[in-house]
Write a protein that binds this DNA or RNA. Structure first.
Lengths: 341, 341
DNA sequence: TTAACGATTGACAGCGTTTGCATAAGCCGA
DNA sequence: TCGGCTTATGCAAACGCTGTCAATCGTTAA
């Protein structure tokens, strides 16, 4: 097992100083063509590659991007354990980051005050926030001046950090309107927590669709859990307690959990109750019944977020971006039938 | 924005040398009680925490664990995009790693020859291989002497690296026997690729169950794709071309894709065809019909893998581990009925 | 001949760890 | 009480590896 060559080895081999090698490596315009060639040859011959940790130490940056996931029960994103939404996001981000020579550091942190030292100790070049976090965390991050991009985050944070969002209001509007157009007049909104701005915007979209369709909004059902099957499954009780004939859920995973619970109670979807979701994760196309939902282009979203972060790390000030959504009609919604609950 | 304190600042503040501070930090027994207390006090007052990149440079290790995921279409694990199996694994690993002060570096690399320099440049302390990779990669890793743990990998690699596996053969055996006990005599095996040892063991378990039940094994269906819905969906064609009345799939995600395709053709599960899966991912409990499957304790598996890696990084030689599996009977399998296909 | 300029280099910074040495303290016997 | 020895502490300096500043060298134009 031979040792990896260092910049000194290259310098000796090429008969120049370390500085020159460094200049060649970093494309600084202060080196002649001849020495440049000699250096490049030596690099090639020795198979030299600069050591990241050493570079990190001098440059004070690490070529690392931190992915901040919500932490539930001491584990990153219980969400993530079942909702492939995060998979698709991370997959897209990883691809983009790798193209630019960055690696991804995955984490959820327990306490807000840990974040700053963690970012500094690791000298992270940028952060991607997946979802909404306690406000103090953003303040901490600002105080150390680290580039970041916020995903699915509204409010006051956005004017300091670039963000990537989707048309939440419109999405919920489209789904609800679709249900109304099918003849439903008792349409229920089911989400996790209306204090989350994303959910709140969706609720507003729901309300607008109800208004425009001349039907009354119903009191929303909140699960106060993360987006998981269980949330939807347990929401069934509250749903069946109403006289709704259609339900709009703020995520596909909730919709799927709900449909399962309804199935166990002998309530058929869509014959007895129409259910629409939000996200269009992969499984929604394959579930039985397949899910009518609002498609957000998750890959595009991840790619956009990574792109903005890369831009911000170069010193730019990327604009916030709001991605389009569209209605995908599948089997879980149907026209109101006379015998509906 | 004040600068972070360095070890020099602490040394000055405590009136000692940098070396002493370092000794205190690393619990080297060469420092008196009194100075130790003074140093600790200064650390506390200044809020000092050592810089990881600097430590990495001297210690030649990074407190980072690399997670190696398969790369499909230039993106980490297309698999991962829809199969929550990986989510659960990563979630478990992350938790364990964080408890020990390690962070997770997520990646898939394009070319085998990139791995070595990548590991060395980042000074990764250990690697977790999620699945089977080209043999040359393991050789590369051995040549640089980096601890690693292999997950779902059999064969010659295992005797050099600790591994975590499950009872693949037994799992498939249990599922197949369950189908046989339900009266099925034409049971089909559907997997992605029998050249993968994991799948191959499962096929052997399938064969053993057939033998013991006195029924003939059928020619296996291979999708030659990763474990995704589409694989199962497309396998339906081959499945319906046989006279099988029951199908064992080597993953839940394939089973779910298959069931969907059957549904579209009007073939009912389990009335017309029984389907069993493997993995017991979250969604299998909530799908319609819910999936009879082989449960592997994914959390435990990730935790065990992380634990073994931590042990190996400390210089230990952890034993390979094979985790138990169990049959979970749900709705997708039923006794053979007269009118079956 | 000198000023100006571009190429090149030595030295240092970045932040810890570790080696080797110096000092102080503690112990023994003479 | 003192010299000589071991042990316990503490420190300066070197090291890990690269990037970058300031200075130097050689060269060319004026």
């Amino acid at each position: 097992m031979k040792k990896r060559p260092t910049i000194t080895d290259v310098a000796k081999h090429a008969g120049v100083s370390k500085a020159s090698v460094s200049y060649v490596l970093n494309n600084v315009k202060k080196v002649s063509q001849s020495t440049k060639e000699r250096v490049l040859l030596s690099i090639e011959e020795l198979g030299y590659e600069p050591d990241f940790t050493a570079v990190s130490l001098t440059r004070q940056r690490s070529q690392l991007i931190g992915i901040i996931l919500p932490l539930v029960n001491q584990s990153i994103a219980s969400v993530m354990r079942e909702n492939t939404y995060y998979n698709e996001m991370i997959s897209a981000v990883e691809q983009r980051a790798r193209e630019s020579g960055f690696d991804l550091l995955l984490t959820g942190l327990s306490r807000p005050e840990h974040y700053r030292t963690w970012v500094q100790k690791r000298k992270l070049d940028g952060l991607l926030f997946f979802g909404l976090f306690p406000k103090e965390i953003y303040d901490e991050m600002r105080s150390i001046d680290v580039p970041a991009v916020l995903i699915d985050t509204y409010e006051e944070h956005t004017d300091r950090y670039p963000s990537v969002n989707i048309e939440d209001e419109k999405g919920a509007y489209l789904a609800t309107r679709h249900l109304a157009e099918l003849g439903h007049t008792r349409i229920l909104f089911t989400g996790t927590n209306l204090k989350n701005p994303v959910e709140n915007y969706r609720f507003q979209g729901y309300q607008r669709a109800c208004r425009e369709s001349g039907i009354a909004s119903m009191h929303p059902v909140e699960t106060f859990h993360y987006h998981g099957f269980k949330s939807g499954y347990e929401a069934a009780e509250k749903v069946t307690a109403t006289d709704a004939t259609a339900v709009f859920c703020t995520s596909d995973i909730i919709a799927q959990g709900l449909i399962r619970a309804l199935f166990e109670q002998g309530i058929r979807v869509p014959e007895d109750l129409s259910v629409a979701g939000f996200d269009d994760i992969h499984s929604s196309r394959y579930s039985i019944p397949s899910l009518t939902t609002i498609r957000q282009q998750i890959q595009l979203k991840g790619d956009a977020a990574a792109g903005k972060l890369l831009e911000a790390m170069k010193g730019g000030s990327p604009e916030p971006e709001v991605l389009d959504v569209s209605l995908i009609v599948r089997e879980s919604t149907a026209p109101l039938s006379k015998g509906s609950a």
